[in-house]
């Protein structure tokens, strides 16, 4: 999942970025409103965390601009302004959530997850694909009675594929939603991690959950691709 964070207060920006990355998100962070709007309009994000008082274009204008252009990316406002008018103004401008500072990292994470689940039509915090169960809160993955231990990157990849279970997901999409821009490499890295993930998901004679469609991409299929 790729998140855009627009926050000018450095300690907050750095902490949120670090935590989101630790929990498997790809994060683009900027302290500047103009740059934030540029990012938001040129990339596809799963959620945007937006501070209202940022230099350049302020948060509310960014929000209005994105909604005006038909961008439906979930936007979570973070602000120290806690009055009802401020919250109503933010939500009426098109924000999906409003988080008042100071807030805890787990709360922010839960709200981001709630918004991303909504985008992909998942209401529960656990997603089941056949006998594969992904717990989005604890980041625990099991297949049948077997627990699968994944690296941060592998989990990020599986989570994204799980959200889109049954759909073909292109390498480009995976690259955009799971990988950091600054990490370098290319979409071939996707193939490598898909291969690692497939090995961990399928053990022994278990049906292959992670299918490849040549020239199109990958998809999670509980029916062994048949």
């Amino acid at each position: 999942m790729r998140i855009l964070l627009i926050e000018d207060y450095t300690p907050l920006r750095e902490s949120i970025t670090e935590h989101l990355k630790d929990t498997g998100f790809a994060v683009d962070a900027t302290p500047d409103g103009n740059e934030g709007l540029k990012f938001a309009t040129s990339h596809k994000y799963d959620a945007i965390v937006l501070d209202l008082m940022v230099p350049g274009i302020d948060g509310l204008k960014i929000l209005t601009e994105l909604r005006k252009n038909g961008d439906e990316t979930p936007i979570i406002i973070t602000s120290a302004l806690d009055s009802m008018e401020n919250r109503v103004e933010g939500l009426n401008a098109g924000a999906d959530d409003y988080l008042i500072k100071p807030f805890g990292l787990p709360e922010l994470l839960a709200r981001i997850q709630a918004q991303t689940r909504k985008v992909y039509g998942k209401r529960k915090a656990t997603i089941e694909v056949g006998d594969l169960v992904v717990d989005l809160n604890s980041k625990r993955v099991t297949r049948g009675k077997r627990e699968i231990v994944l690296t941060k990157r592998e989990y990020g990849l599986l989570e994204y594929l799980t959200y889109r279970a049954g759909e073909i997901v292109s390498r480009q999409e995976i690259w955009e939603h799971v990988y950091q821009d600054a990490e370098g490499g290319s979409s071939n890295a996707v193939d490598v991690y898909v291969s690692y993930l497939r090995k961990k998901l399928n053990e022994g004679n278990e049906p292959n959950l992670l299918q490849t469609r040549r020239g199109q991409g990958y998809f999670l299929d509980p029916n062994d691709g048949t």
Partner: peptide
């Protein structure tokens, strides 16, 4: 009042997040 609250809440958020992390 809003701005004073903001000026104190923002760094308070920073402290909370850095320690939580």
């Amino acid at each position: 009042s809003y701005h004073a609250a903001h000026e104190l809440r923002t760094p308070l958020s920073g402290i909370k997040m850095v320690t939580e992390l």
